[in-house]
Nucleic acid binder design. Structure first.
Lengths: 200, 200
DNA sequence: AGTCATAACTGAGCGCAATCAGTTTATATT
DNA sequence: AATATAAACTGATTGCGCTCAGTTATGACT
């Protein structure tokens, strides 16, 4: 029962291998050079597939970045969730949750900002974009859970405030004004806003 | 003293005329076809300048859109400011301010969303981008003024909350999830969030 | 095994934003 | 006027993301 053994034909296996090769190639090249200095040709070459094939697995170059960064984001979210669980103060818990996400996003600033751009403006009909929105949804749920623990916020309010915090973090990380800011500066900026949002 | 008569040579006059022709051409073509269905070639042709010349007046195609939309945005902001002045309730006043901006942005949805994208992600070193940020700054100031009239919010808090409202409006208008939403739906969505933000 | 249908792949080619080496035009200088 | 300097303009060209008509591999059916 360990493997329900779905009839994996050669075709399906080949597809999965190709997706893995493409993911690995894109991950490596984006990390090393930044998305703007990597061409889709290079990725295709490194993954040993035709350029046309690349676009069967990701509709656009931006989708390719979503594919790569979603994985990192998901890990960061889990890290933050764990840290938030161990924190009681509402503001501190919220920041504990967000901190790893900010760190992850700023690890490579160009990729991080482009990721946010694709997330908001990318085509809603694409798989990796949908996955990104799902993770954002998870983040907002986690935030809402934290807020709900605070007696000041009822169910409905927690959900709406979580959305606002999410928007605030997004804009703060994305804004070209903050393009040069360090992780600490971004985190501080977010904290100020979330603080104003939660305080009475 | 009405005109300090700065020595306007032929050169300077030619430049201004060209900028006007370019602005007019871009305004018309963007409005009619949407930014994605207009090429820079077409704009150059309509403005009767070389393609290279176009990029002396706007560094990128996105900048060209900023140039065009900044004008609309500035008008909408003034309209909203006037409406807000005539409104006493804080939430109502804030929405009165924002409503025309939302309307303006959604008038042509593709252009509106692209405008927001360029605003946040465009190069900070470009003139029209800087102008856009200036108008956003004005919007936040106007918001802060409204909030300050409410005894619940002191000076500092008003400024921070204004930033948050601005971020909320941005994300709500930009999100691909809301790409199909009507002006009323967007406005309602923003109102819900701002309401949660201001209420106790 | 042989035949067919179709899913998956491929890379030459297309459209477009943006560049840049070469040209024109305006002003300053003599 | 003639010359020099540099600002402004230009369009052929480049580079890149993405497409699509043609090809190949896979699995189903007899």
């Amino acid at each position: 029962m360990s493997t329900p053994a779905p009839p994996l034909g050669r075709r399906e296996r080949n597809k999965q291998q190709k997706l893995e090769r493409i993911t690995a190639a894109a991950t490596e090249l984006f990390a090393e050079h930044g998305i703007d200095d990597v061409t889709t040709q290079q990725i295709a070459e490194k993954a040993d597939v035709g350029t046309g094939t690349l676009f069967l697995y990701a509709k656009t170059k931006g989708e390719l970045l979503l594919l790569v960064q979603n994985a990192h984001y998901a890990v960061a979210l889990e890290t933050g969730r764990a840290a938030a669980e161990a924190t009681s103060d509402t503001l501190e818990a919220a920041m504990a949750l967000l901190r790893p996400i900010i760190e992850c996003n700023r690890a490579q600033i160009e990729n991080g900002r482009t990721y946010l751009r694709e997330m908001v403006f990318g085509s809603a009909t694409d798989a990796h974009h949908a996955e990104a929105l799902r993770i954002v949804g998870d983040t907002e749920s986690a935030l809402a859970d934290i807020l709900r623990r605070d007696p000041r916020f009822d169910e409905n309010r927690s959900v709406v405030l979580a959305r606002i915090v999410s928007a605030v973090m997004f804009v703060t990380m994305a804004a070209s004004v903050n393009a040069e800011s360090s992780i600490d500066e971004i985190a501080q900026d977010v904290r100020t806003q979330v603080g104003a949002l939660l305080d009475r």
